[in-house]
Design a protein around this nucleic acid. Structure first.
Length: 431
RNA sequence: UCCUCAGUAGCUCAAUGGUAGAGCAACCGGCUGUUAACCGGUAGGUUGCAGGUUCAAAUCCUGCCUGGGGAGCCA
């Protein structure tokens, strides 16, 4: 007798196996009972026929509560009536723990209730599908980076000062000093790129903004590659390659999960076939003005602007050459046009917003110093960063990809909170 | 911080000034192929909180609290 996983059940057709899992649902029809069992790898229907099990087991099953943990032994049978293709004909079973009345029924629930019960919500098929895809997205990104010669360099989470001096940071006490939770590992990656050539970090980032939209989390995961001797154009090409690699990996391995999420996979297939669209900030402003948007050259895009630009295309679109004034201090100006920078945002289609922010970095010491002074950033805090321009400075570029926005787009989610196991939102630090 | 919508049974929702109800979950019973099974029954309420108007308030008014959606900011 072997304990097997539901995802591998097809390999055991016609054989006796043991499953360990939880009761997702129970239906009965007098002398036959159907137990839907989940084990974290899948869901299977176990069939109990009264005349074929002991009366003791039959009674146990009759009183089984939702989410009780069980160990079931039976015969694997192919069955076309099952969505999985297989069922388990139960022979014996044991209750490991009889669950108390379970709060999450199989009917609809509101967002507030589900978020309060996130620790239990994760057990549902939809959330399990998203978490499996999240795992594959991370794995695919790292696989791609490995084959492209990147080295993982972990950036610190406690930092002495603002990385970019823009967003609101979480402040904490650090042995009498102040420290801040990281909003980006980029500056550290620039140091690492000068050491290892191609590097990336992957970890949580924190923004204390009082954002209250479906596109924002207080704590989210960001992957930030940084490459020495790579310019703005090569940077964009690498981003496109990575995004396509990851989307293809999910399509190859998660069709059933995407189907469960009711994702239109044709829209994902479609982006693999052709190059991503590109437009300049100038063109974007011109287009938005022609559509009646209240926006001037020099303004940053609002959410409705981004959506309008994304809707111009059926795939992701790069918007490049943003005004220097609205972008971070370290971005390199376009040589013949210093009022714009060698930066690009990648906007996901279908209104999912910016999933990548990228730029070529300033490699000239004097210009970088000037920018730090212009933006009134604390020069001392950036002394080590300026050092990178003193000892063998080279052209270099990098990008940051927001994991949850990427996942939300791939899965077709309506809110980022479903893309992370335990979302931190404004007013929500539990569970 | 601003705009907007909402808060009624464990959950999802009805009840628009006149006796607080349904479905699901729970509990009891029925059914040998159910797919959020179905059928019958039982139990379950300080209508977010405080005040006001009224013969009468879940319902109208004021304030507060909590949450949803959006804006700004960003990935």
């Amino acid at each position: 007798m072997t304990t097997v996983l539901i995802k591998d059940i097809g390999q055991h057709n016609g054989k006796q196996v043991t499953l360990k899992g939880w009761l997702y649902n129970r239906r009965s029809s007098g002398k036959i009972q159907f137990l839907i069992i989940r084990d974290g790898t899948g869901f299977i229907q176990a069939v109990l026929v009264q005349s074929e099990v002991s009366s003791q087991d039959w009674e146990l099953a009759t009183g089984l509560t939702q989410e009780s943990s069980v160990e079931i032994t039976g015969m694997v049978k192919e069955d076309t009536r099952s969505p999985l293709g297989y069922e388990l004909a139960v022979e014996t079973f044991a209750v490991i723990h009889s669950a108390e009345e379970y709060p999450i029924s199989l009917k609809e629930h509101g967002v507030d209730f589900l978020l309060d019960h996130r620790h239990l919500w994760l057990r549902t098929p939809r959330q399990a599908a998203i978490m499996h895809i999240r795992n594959s997205v991370i794995k695919a990104m790292r696989d791609w980076l490995d084959t492209e010669g990147f080295t993982l360099i972990d950036a610190p989470i406690l930092t002495p000062a603002a990385c970019e001096g823009t967003t609101t940071l979480f402040e904490t006490e650090y042995f009498g000093d102040k420290a801040y939770l990281s909003q980006s590992g980029q500056l550290y990656m620039e140091a690492a790129a000068m050491a290892m050539g191609r590097v990336y970090c992957f970890g949580p980032t924190f923004r204390a903004e009082k954002s209250k939209t479906r596109r924002h989390l207080i704590e989210f995961w960001m992957m930030e590659p940084e490459m020495a001797f790579v310019d703005h154009k090569q940077n964009m090409a690498l981003q496109e390659s990575m995004v396509k690699y990851v989307v293809k990996a999910v399509l190859d391995n998660h069709l059933r999960d995407l189907e469960l999420l009711e994702r239109d996979t044709a829209k994902l297939e479609n982006i693999l076939a052709k190059p991503f669209a590109k437009m300049t900030y100038d063109q974007a402003i011109q287009y938005l003005q022609s559509q009646g948007h209240e926006i001037q050259w020099g303004d940053d895009f609002g959410a409705p602007d981004e959506t309008a630009l994304a809707n111009l295309h059926d795939g992701p679109v790069f918007v490049e050459h943003f005004p220097t004034a609205i972008k971070a201090f370290y971005m390199k100006p376009v040589p013949e046009r210093p009022e714009v920078v060698l930066a690009a945002d990648l906007l996901a289609p279908e209104g999912y917003g910016e999933i990548i922010g990228s730029s070529q970095r300033i490699d000239d010491l004097d210009l970088l110093l000037q920018r730090i002074q212009e933006q009134k950033l604390p020069e001392e805090a950036f002394a080590w960063y300026l050092d990178l321009r003193r000892y063998g400075s080279v052209p270099h570029s990098g990008f940051g990809i927001g994991l949850e926005r990427f996942i939300s787009w791939i899965c077709g989610l309506s809110h980022l909170r479903e893309a992370i196991p335990f979302p931190r939102l404004i007013n929500r630090l539990y569970p």
